[in-house]
């Protein structure tokens, strides 16, 4: 009987297409749709801040250079990972991440909590030639980042696009995007104060690549690396819903 029905289905191309769509849609709908409605999906973290324009520019360089192909940003709930990299990653930490950069491969180590672990100087030396600091490394050298001026003309538009998608950038943040970008990498300039005023006292203001007079892609990338894991304290303060006792069979 079942086969008889299938013999009929095989005679109509449109019917077959509809059957394919029906069969293929269920899994995605059941798994994806609830993620937007269940409020436990993303924890609440009132202290979560948005990326500064400089950090966002750095994040876009991270994406552009394909860093995610070798570095994850997702510490799993496993003992050795927590001991190696720090508290396991929470969903809220990538709440504003478009796209997410959890990654799928660790040719290099996880970077979810790399921020603050090394000095700016170390990062610049490492990005300039990884083998100068880590002789066994197989990471490419990114010398030209320090030579390439950061394109700041359109960062306002980037912030606007992010806001259109729901990231809470304020009008003041958008209006001062260019000034904040410069100010965050020039601690002695008059623009530096505005950055901490708008993005919080904890925001790192520093001459990331060591040269405060010129804004380079190196500044942006280091600023981004230094903020990884620093946008919220949620992972350290255990705001997550209480865990069930671990199931030894799972």
């Amino acid at each position: 009987m079942a086969e008889l029905f299938h013999r009929k289905l095989e005679r109509t191309a449109i019917g077959f297409v509809i059957a394919i769509i029906a069969a293929a849609s269920v899994g995605g709908i059941v798994e994806i749709a609830p993620l937007f409605t269940i409020n436990q999906t993303v924890e609440d973290a009132p202290d979560l801040r948005v990326y500064t324009p400089l950090e966002l520019a750095g994040r876009n360089i991270y994406v552009r250079e394909g860093c995610y192909a070798c570095h994850s940003q997702m510490i799993r709930t496993l003992r050795d990972e927590v001991e190696r990299y720090g508290p396991y990653s929470l969903a809220v930490e990538s709440k504003y991440d478009r796209p997410m950069l959890w990654g799928s491969k660790r040719t290099g180590p996880d970077l979810a909590r790399i921020g603050g672990k090394y000095s700016d100087f170390w990062h610049v030396a490492h990005l300039t030639n990884p083998r100068d600091v880590v002789p066994e490394s197989n990471m490419p050298a990114y010398r030209w980042l320090a030579r390439t001026a950061l394109d700041t003309d359109d960062l306002t538009r980037h912030l606007q696009a992010q806001r259109a998608l729901g990231v809470p950038y304020t009008d003041a943040m958008i209006a001062n995007a260019a000034a904040d970008t410069f100010g965050q990498a020039a601690p002695d300039s008059p623009f530096a104060a505005g950055v901490t005023e708008r993005y919080g006292e904890k925001t790192q203001v520093s001459a990331f690549d060591g040269v405060a007079t010129q804004l380079t892609e190196m500044d942006a990338l280091v600023a981004y690396l230094q903020v990884l894991g620093q946008l919220t304290d949620a992972a350290y303060s255990n705001t997550a819903a209480p865990e069930q006792a671990p199931d030894p069979t799972n």
Partner: peptide, 14 residues
């Protein structure tokens, strides 16, 4: 350059 409409955990699933 564009920004995906999906963010964070939802983006990971998509």
């Amino acid at each position: 350059k564009s920004y995906t409409i999906w963010a964070g955990v939802q983006d990971s699933m998509v």
